[in-house]
Design a protein around this nucleic acid. Structure first.
Lengths: 343, 343
DNA sequence: TTGTACGCGTTATCAC
DNA sequence: GTGATAACGCGTACAA
């Protein structure tokens, strides 16, 4: 109950608390013997330093924090691994915190900063609209992954690493068109989406236009309010409805691989097959996309590269070299079995 | 830089720090007007209380902590949602922390306890071998999900919620046998596994024995050291090798749904089909299992129920009612398209 | 109802 | 190389 503190260690060892502190934190100016004796006592008694007290006192904590939006998002899981590895290789400690779907990630970061004093922050996903005033309060350098912060925030305040989502939408749509598809339905995000969802949709619209195909509003399947557009359930529901309604399409362009799994099942459950009756294409390039049956044709995001780049930018920022950067990657069209050429 | 503290708020409002503290923490003995004025100043200046300092002072923090082993594990993701909801409905705050694959989760909990002073802890997954001495140091009540702590720890010290993994293995194996399968290969965990993997394998062995089928060691496909047995890649690799080796089997019993996705792909890539050439059965009942093609026959864990039950036990423990409990659930055999009857 | 002052466990800054 | 001691920001007796 009454916890074992640094004072107890000091008392038992017959030294001052500062000496114990030095031992714990690998300070150079300490007698190796003293240090060893202290470490022994610590181990024997199972002493664990109180992090709250440490963070309270410390000015900066050689920690890199990762704030992830929606921990259930399979897309970020591989990125986390990469970031964690780099972090540890560079002798930083790693702190992962999720932020709720409804919460403001900048707010969360502000709080985190007061508490843990990280020397750098990585945001995985997030929302598009923030006020510069708030962003400006963050004092640690930070990198935003897979999104940018919107037009209201000066680009000098942060770094970002993302793909060109408009282009990705454009490319995949063009690909489908080049294979003869004209009636391409898009399983989109919510209509009020201002982030990735909107951009991919924009690319879709632009590609149609450039190829002289009029946009049919009935072929844009927005997610309902309160639904998670990127979920399998949403993909399933929207496409089930669509097929039942009797509307025609030869291909579905789906906002994410995950939603595409739902779309595929909806097609099967309707007694149709892929890609004979409907082609399915999507975005992200999850590991599962290549294990699914059929394997998905998808715009693969270079997750590994993005994670590495994000960390390089961040570490440079921390070291004081370099300035904020905004790197744009290209998604790579990866052909699977889910799309076919039609006549 | 120099952060905005409770003192600044007090100074601006012309009150004492304790009054501000009372306002923040919703203490009753404060003038509503004073309170309102303080809250206004707080909002205007974007004051954020320093959690480290709070936790340092607080003896207990109406927080329920969830320690999850391997955040990438899709199995836990639905449980997290449920736990979070219950936590919030009961006005506790929710803290999610991952523990690395190699780390000791009890150690992590001990540290967490010093730092955040949670009033209860939920472990999602974990290892089987712990020393009672260490477990005894945890002072908050805790519930372990999907596992138990092993024979070395007194059952009075903790609660647990899990399925009977031996039985699950037994039932699925019996099911396959009842459909005419005799050569059932098991894609197992590592040979040195002492937890879930071992128990499911045990059920498999027992079922074979009870049905008079001799155990063929060549049909037990242990994961290699350093491989994650529950990964798609492992399922893919072990079964690819198996098929290439020319050994015979009519069904694969796979340690988890996730690994089973890899197994399915391996079978397809070998030019075979499911369930015509090989039946595939697995454990967990992930959401993806019902979206996959074919849908998987799997022993579904009642995740929702388990999460709810875990929280009920924990909340009772926190309130001082009730004692530690060990609830064992049964996994439910869910038939999909991946298994067929053979002659 | 409000303010003052102390202590939580640690690290940093001094002297020694 | 080591030991006092002053912060760090907050909650809370206790006094007013």
């Amino acid at each position: 109950m009454e916890s074992f503190t640094i004072k107890d260690v000091a008392r038992i060892c017959g030294v001052g608390v500062s000496t114990v502190s030095r031992a714990i934190n690998n300070h150079p100016d300490i007698n190796p013997q003293t240090r060893q004796r202290i470490m022994e006592v610590i181990k024997q008694n199972g002493y664990i330093p109180n992090n709250s007290a440490r963070n309270l006192k410390r000015t900066e904590s050689r920690t890199i924090a990762v704030l992830i939006r929606g921990i259930t998002n399979p897309f970020f899981q591989e990125m986390i691994k990469t970031i964690e590895q780099i972090t540890e290789r560079r002798r930083y400690s790693f702190l992962l915190q999720q932020v709720d779907e409804e919460d403001d990630e900048i707010e969360a970061a502000l709080e985190l900063e007061k508490e843990k004093k990280p020397c750098g922050i990585v945001f995985l996903g997030g929302t598009y609209t923030h006020k510069e005033e708030k962003v400006r309060k963050l004092k640690a350098p930070f990198v935003v992954c897979t999104i940018t912060l919107g037009p209201d925030v000066s680009q000098d305040l942060y770094s970002s690493v993302a793909i060109d989502d408009v282009l990705a939408g454009y490319e995949m749509t063009s690909h489908l068109i080049s294979l003869g598809h004209k009636k391409i339905a898009m399983v989109a995000a919510r209509e009020d989406d201002r982030a990735i969802g909107r951009m991919r949709l924009e690319g879709y619209c632009k590609a149609l236009e450039d190829h002289g195909i009029p946009l049919d509003p009935e072929l844009v399947l927005y997610a309902e309010k309160g639904q998670n557009a990127y979920s399998m359930a949403n993909g399933y529901q929207k496409v089930s409805q669509f097929i039942q309604s009797g509307k025609e399409a030869t291909a579905f362009l789906v906002i994410s691989d995950n939603a595409a799994f739902g779309v595929c099942k909806a097609i099967r459950d309707a007694g149709k097959s892929i890609p004979e009756d409907y082609s399915v294409a999507s975005f992200d390039g999850l590991e599962m996309a290549s294990y699914y049956n059929p394997t998905l044709t998808t715009m693969k995001q270079p997750r590994e590269k993005m994670a590495v780049e994000a960390m390089e930018i961040l570490l440079d920022l921390i070291d004081g070299y370099g300035q904020n950067q905004h790197r744009v990657f290209q998604a790579q069209l990866t052909e699977g079995e889910s799309v076919r050429r039609i006549d």
